[in-house]
Design a binder for these strands. Sequence first.
DNA 1: TCAACAGTTTAGAATTATTCTAAATTGCAG
DNA 2: CTGCAATTTAGAATAATTCTAAACTGTTGA
Lengths: 141, 141
Amino acid sequence: MRRKLRETANETATMRLRHAGLRPTRQRNELAKLLFRNGHRHLTAEMLHAEAVSEGVKVSLATVYNTLHQFTQAGLLLQVVVDPTRSYFDTNTADHQHFYCEDESSLIDIPGPDIAVAGLPTPPPGTQIKRVDVVVHVRRH
Amino acid sequence: MRRKLRETANETATMRLRHAGLRPTRQRNELAKLLFRNGHRHLTAEMLHAEAVSEGVKVSLATVYNTLHQFTQAGLLLQVVVDPTRSYFDTNTADHQHFYCEDESSLIDIPGPDIAVAGLPTPPPGTQIKRVDVVVHVRRH
DNA sequence: TCAACAGTTTAGAATTATTCTAAATTGCAG
DNA sequence: CTGCAATTTAGAATAATTCTAAACTGTTGA
Ligand SMILES: [Mn+2]
Ligand SMILES: [Mn+2]
Ligand SMILES: [Zn+2]
Ligand SMILES: [Zn+2]
């Protein structure tokens, strides 16, 4: 009950990884700590890599890409497609939607229950609905 | 009243371009004819370029990219972002949404009035809503 | 009719995000 | 500890897209 916060964060990250079936390596632990230490975030591989480097975490960009995809497959992250030039990853895996401001390339969450899509037609034959994504594009005025 | 269909198509394309404020060049005319000759389509620059080449239309890939963006700015096309690896252009500029089947990279229109998004929260301060995109991801089962 | 020039096209180089390769390193089961 | 599969990584490769700068063309006004 007197362990340092750092150790606790480490154990939390390790547990999260084990629970997701991922081997808790040094790099995955560090990246998980950066990703999940505070509220929800939307970030690109480059952004996370820059953050890691600036905080003294040694990890290659290739590993950041690998890790983001592994976390996504494991359900720890969600990939968001709104900008044709880059891929965002979202630490909020709950059902929710987004405002996207192209001017500043920023994503803002819209809580899932707030928004409702009605009148969905039957999906094409032989397919079933997997997810409904709503992106509300906004512009600075 | 006895002109060939080809001539009529040419005039239609030319008029469409003039009306959009674009100089009707040979390449723009040919691409407009390919794009708008039949029902609505969703296609990438590479796809349109391949189609042009296969039908004997001489145009460079760079021009296809330029033209697709110019047509989009002019309101003749809509850009659709669903796949992080490529950009689709949509000849349907009416208000509508999409089914996206990742397995086969195919987009299918959902007529605008069919679908309704309710409960949109107030957009972030200083911004106004520009467009609401709904993508229904489906999977082969 | 046509010269002039802005707008357009284009080949090829460049850029950018992302993925791949193959060799070195590391976590962990035994 | 050891052995080995899983992981990491530097750097090369790939793929979509954009840029550059030189050649070409549509339009216009004399
Ligand atoms: Mn892209
Ligand atoms: Mn890309
Ligand atoms: Zn989000
Ligand atoms: Zn469409």
